[in-house]
Amino acid sequence: MTASSVVLLGPQGTVPRVRDALRDLGVREPVAIVTAGWEERERELLPFMKHVELPVRNLDVFRRAEVVYGRDPDLHAAMRKRHDRVRAQQRLYRARLAHALDAARESLARSDAPPGLLAADRRDAIDAIRRLDAFHLARVDEIELEFELGVRPAERPAVALHRARIRERLAGCRALCIAGGHVGILVNRMRLLGVLDAHLSLPGDRPIVAWSAGAMALASRVVLFHDHPPQGAGNAEVFRAGLGIAPGIVPLPHADRRLALADRARVALFAARFAPDACVVLNAGARLDLRAGDWHATPDTLRLAPDGSLGPVQEVA
């Protein structure tokens, strides 16, 4: 899937930038919005409507999925079973990941071997993490595929009905906005109801503006991260494949609060682990535009650099 214009933004709480982005894209007509990541607060749209100063059509993705589950208990049960399998796979992955990351951190901290040997050791330690990430992603993809083939959600009447209604609503809108919130719920429900397929199949240039978890959902893979959680080691982990229209980047909303950006060893390992994708710091005010296949970032939008510093996005895009 491709979209002609995609804009990714940082959190919108204190520095809202969606209106600027829509104006820059020439959007003057109604916009559609997905706020499924807000869950039960999905319809609390007043601040957003005041901000964008345009008619807003809520796609009600969270609520529609609830309705679908209520009308199709077999689908709901299959979703739950898939969810349990993904969680079990995530636990297996997490246990191995902790060891792999410890090994890489130890290698990066050592200085008691000739530089050539150390460099090779570090490369292999990081490759081990990358292989594990890739293995996990493949296993989750298999679980997804089993679910898709076994249940065929798009063909089920309750799903098809709401897919059609979402498509109708999208057809009257010039752009699609995707808000943050719970990234797992956002990805799952957008996929179930085919929101992106419907949007991209409509004629004309219809940009997408997404922020925080919305930006994460659009990447090729969803990476969860927090360097100092109240429990656990704070090891960033791959969750699952994203919706894939924002390739080549790993969006990191709230990186200033969630990542130890001054810890160069930690930043360097993060950058190396997900290379060649650019790990982009999406703090409040950040903006990243995808136009004709190339990323363009504002000067204050930074990425994690392999040397552990924060650098401009353009250098690696």
Binding site: P11, G180, G181, H182, S212, A213, L224, P230, P253, H254
Partner: peptide, 8 residues
């Protein structure tokens, strides 16, 4: 809480 999954 849903810390690992929520990015507002």
């Amino acid at each position: 809480g849903p810390l690992w999954f929520v990015y507002e």
